[in-house]
Amino acid sequence: MDQFIEQIVTGLSIGSILLLVALGLSIIYGSMGIINLAHGEFVMLGAYAAWVFHTYLGLGLLASLVPIFLVVAAFGWVIERYVLSLLNNRPLDTILATWGVGIMLQQAVRLMVGSELRYVQLPPALADSMNVFGIPISSYRVFLFVVSIALFGATWMLMNRTTVGMKLRAIIQDRSVAASFGINAKRVYALTFAYGAGLAGLAGALVSPLKSVSPDMGTGYVVDAFMVVVLGGVQSLAGTVASAFILGELSGGIAFLQNDTVAKTIVLLAIVVLIRFRPEGLFTARVRA
C-alpha cells in the first residue's frame, strides 16, 4: 500500500513538472497555432537565468522567479515580433523557424557559459521533507505541485477574466472580425507568446534544483510537453492539466512495473494512436468543422 501511494506521489511529481512546461506550450499552440520547438530552449534559459541570478547576484531561487519570468518573456516577445509574425500563414514553417531559433539559443548559451553542467541550490526553506499520508516527501516537490496548480489558475484567470484574455479569445475565433473591432492582433499575439515563453522560463527555473542545468536540457522537455498538449487537446487548459497528470502517472507507473524504455515506448505509441483516432485531444468537445 505504501509503495502504491509512493508511486502515485512520484507520478504527481512528474506530472506537475510536465504541467509547468506544457502550460506555456499549450497557450502558444492553442491560441496561435504555433508549434514552438524553441520551447525547450526557453525552459533552458529559465534554468540558466536562475543559475546566473544565484551565482552572480546572490539571489535565492524564490526571489528570482519574477525577474526570470520577465527576462524569458522578453526573449519570447522579441522572437514573436521579429521572426514568427513574418510567418503568418505558413504554420508548418513556424516549426522550422522555431527550431532554428532553438538551435541559436542553445548554441549561444553554450558559447557564452560553456557546456559544463551547472547546479542550482534548493531553496533552504524547502530543503527538508514532509509527511504526507505517512510517507516522507520532499517539500520542494510538494511546492512544485502547488506552484504548477497556482500557475494554471493564474493562466485560466488571465484567459477568461481579463481584457487581454478576452481579446485573445476573440482573435482565436475570427482574427479579421476581431481586428475590425479595433483589437490589435499583432500586439496580443506578441504578448501571448511572451507570456508562454515566460511560463517556460519559470518551469526551467523551478526544475533547475532537481536536474542539472545544461544547454541541451530543454530538448527532452519539449517532446514530453508536446505530448501533453496533444493528449489534452488544443485550446483546452483543463485538458492540459488532466493529461499532464495522466501522463505523469502513466510513465511513473509503467517505469515502475517495467523499465523506462518500455514506459516511453508505450506512451509514444499511445500518443500516435490517439492522434490518428482523436486528433482534437481527449478533453475537447468536437470542434466544428
Partner: peptide, 22 residues
Amino acid sequence: GRVTGVYVSIITLATMVVINLV
C-alpha cells in the same frame, strides 16, 4: 484516417523515436 500537416510530423517523429528506443 486523413491525418494531415503537423500531426503527420508528430506521428513520424514519434514512430522513429520508438524504433530507436527499441
